[in-house]
Design a protein around this nucleic acid. Sequence first.
DNA 1: CGTGCCAGGTGCCTT
DNA 2: AAGGCACTTGGCACG
Lengths: 250, 250
Amino acid sequence: MFSFGQARQRIEEAIKGKQMLLVVGNCYVEYWGRAASKLPKGKRLLMIKGDSSSAIHQNRLLRPTNYMMNARISCEEQDNALVLSAKKLKPKESIKVFFYRVDDIQSYEMDSAADLRLFGSERELSNELMKDLSFLEEGLKPLKQEQAFRKGIADLIAEDKDGNIVVIEVKRRKADFSAVTQLQRYAKQVEKINGVKTRGILVAPEIMKNARDLLENYGLEYYSFDFEIGNPKTKIKGVQKKQPTITEFM
Amino acid sequence: MFSFGQARQRIEEAIKGKQMLLVVGNCYVEYWGRAASKLPKGKRLLMIKGDSSSAIHQNRLLRPTNYMMNARISCEEQDNALVLSAKKLKPKESIKVFFYRVDDIQSYEMDSAADLRLFGSERELSNELMKDLSFLEEGLKPLKQEQAFRKGIADLIAEDKDGNIVVIEVKRRKADFSAVTQLQRYAKQVEKINGVKTRGILVAPEIMKNARDLLENYGLEYYSFDFEIGNPKTKIKGVQKKQPTITEFM
DNA sequence: CGTGCCAGGTGCCTT
DNA sequence: AAGGCACTTGGCACG
């Protein structure tokens, strides 16, 4: 149990020192901004980090009920509550946390964040594919990624053995509608720029039935593959071309 | 500073009691599952909630660096570290947090989580529109909300004064490419089912340039609208039909 | 700064 | 269980 005066002092010190601050207590929360919300009174945890990002957590789920980044945080006593406010402009947003009882305050001096190293990202898969496309299809050669097309417009651009431009979209998860529409869009753009028929290949471990239908409708191609997350590198185990059979058309 | 023995006891009790548990200390983190990652030694906060969702937080950003839900959590002493593990099957995932120093442990008995009341969601906006489509367009009558199709769910289905079926897609923020393809999909579905020309209307506060182009290409319509997020109800302030002008074609 | 796009997305709801 | 989708999506990279 903290008096609001004590609490306020602790909190302001922690924020000033860019410490990891935790406040636990009975509170009511109001948010207004991109949307609006009210959280009825209850016991919750308020977490304020050194970069001023703050979050209200209940005792369930990963995501906080309320949160804000890059906010200006202030703390004041108001009537019978300790009010913590986070405000920001652009977009204009505000959170107000009314603490009616403060059960605990903890703050920790943290060291500068060590970065997470991630393997098995889509990017890495794309890089891995780029190294050797021959196992996708005989005679497929990657073109330089930068060149005429803006970077990021497609995962990979290659040339097949007949000289056709091939746009390749890589998804490391089950491909859905948006993967197909994205590929279609890329292929169309490339076609427009080069003025020649362009193939579009979607490479993914799986594809949703509906997405598959759309893909075939667009005349795009699909390759499935298996991959194994390895350390330190992603290993692609096998690729299999999936072409619609006659029966699938009926 | 906690001895690993003490720490372990505290932690196990808190987990058993479904309390909100916080452990602060110097740790090394490994994740293996949908991707793979390693966090070098550093001071971090581990949060374990009553529903067994757990997260490793650094002193910046809203999102935790590592996290897991519905995991089986265990705690053991190993060599010179206190190891907290979260494991789950389907998909097979695991996080291991190796604490080399435990600075603090806090646990809190929390009450059952209260529901956040959110205003200004897409659903609420759709509800508001559903009530009265007339200020969208004269003689427009709502038929059905949340119409499920084989390939998705349309926000609203209506009928215009000439008896045409109108599919309406509502977006609470700037509409992008995917909003247009989504609408197009639903409109096509309805057209196919009913065998008559179907109008598609996108209602959003703004629309991205290329999305707008695609929309017009598809022969769909766009209405911009303003809304005021309020409590207890979000109000739609105005709807305006946006048709391409002659100059826009040049 | 906006635009585009991935994410170990999360969470919710429906079939 | 899987699909489909909104989300105050968050976060990052690029123009």
